[in-house]
Write a protein that binds this DNA or RNA. Sequence first.
DNA 1: CCCGCTAGTCGAAGCGTTTCGACGCTCTCA
DNA 2: TGAGAGCGTCGAAACGCTTCGACTAGCGGG
Lengths: 342, 342
Amino acid sequence: MTDGHTQDGHATGRAVTIVEVARHAGVAVSTVSYVLSGKRAISADTRRRVLDSVRTLGYHPNAGARALASKRANVIALVLPLRAGMHVPVLMRFATSVVTAARHFDHDVLLLTADEGLDGLRRAAASALVDGLVLMDVELDDPRVPLLRRLAEPSVLIGFPADSAGVTCVDLDFAAAGELCVAHLAERGHHEVALLGAPSVVYERGTGFARRTLEGFTTALAEHGLDGTALPCEETFDEVHATVSGLLAARPGLSGLVVHNEAAVNHVLSSLRQLGRKVPQDLAVVAICPDDIAEPARLTSVLIPAEEVGREAVGLLMEKLAGRTVPPATLLVPRLTVRAST
Amino acid sequence: MTDGHTQDGHATGRAVTIVEVARHAGVAVSTVSYVLSGKRAISADTRRRVLDSVRTLGYHPNAGARALASKRANVIALVLPLRAGMHVPVLMRFATSVVTAARHFDHDVLLLTADEGLDGLRRAAASALVDGLVLMDVELDDPRVPLLRRLAEPSVLIGFPADSAGVTCVDLDFAAAGELCVAHLAERGHHEVALLGAPSVVYERGTGFARRTLEGFTTALAEHGLDGTALPCEETFDEVHATVSGLLAARPGLSGLVVHNEAAVNHVLSSLRQLGRKVPQDLAVVAICPDDIAEPARLTSVLIPAEEVGREAVGLLMEKLAGRTVPPATLLVPRLTVRAST
DNA sequence: CCCGCTAGTCGAAGCGTTTCGACGCTCTCA
DNA sequence: TGAGAGCGTCGAAACGCTTCGACTAGCGGG
């Protein structure tokens, strides 16, 4: 407490270096390094002495020096979008799960925003700031994909571009999710159902997950012999209300609704309340959305497993960093939770 | 194109180093460094030659080496919370504005989550991974504050702890925001108003902004001679609905509502719709929330200037990094936008 | 005419790690 | 009993950059 060190062993002044640890433990610098990395056998006694010194001196390896010598920054980049039609809370859950998973592998996460564009990726990669990249919200025709293919650093995409050759992708199997919802409604005895999807701008942009849900929905309709329709759905109450009342008017036989739009879910429910339709008596509703939205509203839902996707993405990236080959596509199987709305 | 370099000058193989640039330009390594940093005078001719070489070779300085030699990582940490009662979209806007602002100063952003706790901060700081820290969602009695005071690395808080001595804080002036709302309602001729605030858990946690809004609200009530009450407000529709109908029943004279809870705003409006109260005829509503919520709902609001706060925080941090002293507290003045709800 | 500047450049010494090769032990097995 | 194989440790060479001090010209002032 009197020598510039605080109680918890944290130096407030100049940082402790590996040389001081080595001196304190009476060993060579390289020995300290090997104790810490475990890359060579070390006697139990030496290890203990070194570890003690590390603790009492409050040593933390210097990240820059480590990166320079080992050619590994132990940092991965997370590239987040910030655009129309993305549900932000889900994004955040992805982000936290990526951070948490990365920490498990002793890596940190550098935050890049998509609006820095290609240059941002190039810079981060070329300067060895990061060892690898995780990208979110990939579009069908994403300009970043060709760049990633050329980069020396490995990367993992969350979502699928149209041409996914040469890149690694992870996502929820949205087609299966769409099918699952229809199957559930069919099982419950419904004959006429509808899909309320993402805002039209999302379809136009060609974002993969919206289309794939639609495909799964359509396929399952045929499979189960149901009658059905699909509509895009905007995100303000008034627009949702217009869509919903239009839909109900046009299809009086409608008894099941699949909603794949996190931001609109609550508006849909408000709208039905206002139109006097009871859920699930008059209309069964199943949503494809994160649990934190479905749970309070007591909605039967296929959850978007943000945590799992993030963890998986990081896991794959670590495999690639270790030089192992990984499957180019990973589809996470959807799971449906039955609640009060069906 | 045939020598391991792609068209845009990006090396796909081993990275270009400053030595190669120096050789290519026919100057010393140090000269290249000085050209790039501008820390010493360089003749126009030499500068041009070096810059040309940089471009044609596609040189990017190695971040680790740079950090090691200069003792500056050019990275700042952004510590994000992920807890009950925080409105995530706002968080994201803070985050992006921090990233954008940091890039303006040629810095990158390392993402730390609050659940890594004190160790995360210590680690990032002690390993020289980052040069400084920006923390969000500071609580009144935040355990991180004492640690920050002891850290060699400068930091900036978004929000105010109870004891802000020795730390630098930025935030919207929520007291002023509360006052502003009341003043606006008073001006519109209302005599009895209410504040619907954050979920009770947020008050109990002692988060500063919730309390400060309440203080401003109360102060302004007295100032303008209004009658008023304040309630916490949960975030599911049913709870909001209960709170709102209870409030209206208890206070028949109520004609103005201040809502300071982003997640509940839309539920409040749904609830009023369902209760048959017209906005603004029967009840004027003014919200303290981000524009992306107020705008589509046509709500009169005091916006939470996420971009501005983030930019300001980074600006202050950069000042501190440059060794200059900065004001310990920065309060951003709120501005009210009149829309259709009052 | 010499001194002291400044502008422009260079060489070399770090910065704090990791990692490679070498060395001395102690075992084992032939 | 001597060769070979580990094990445990050390020393030193990178890693790619910044920065300090030194040096050379060229120039104005005394």
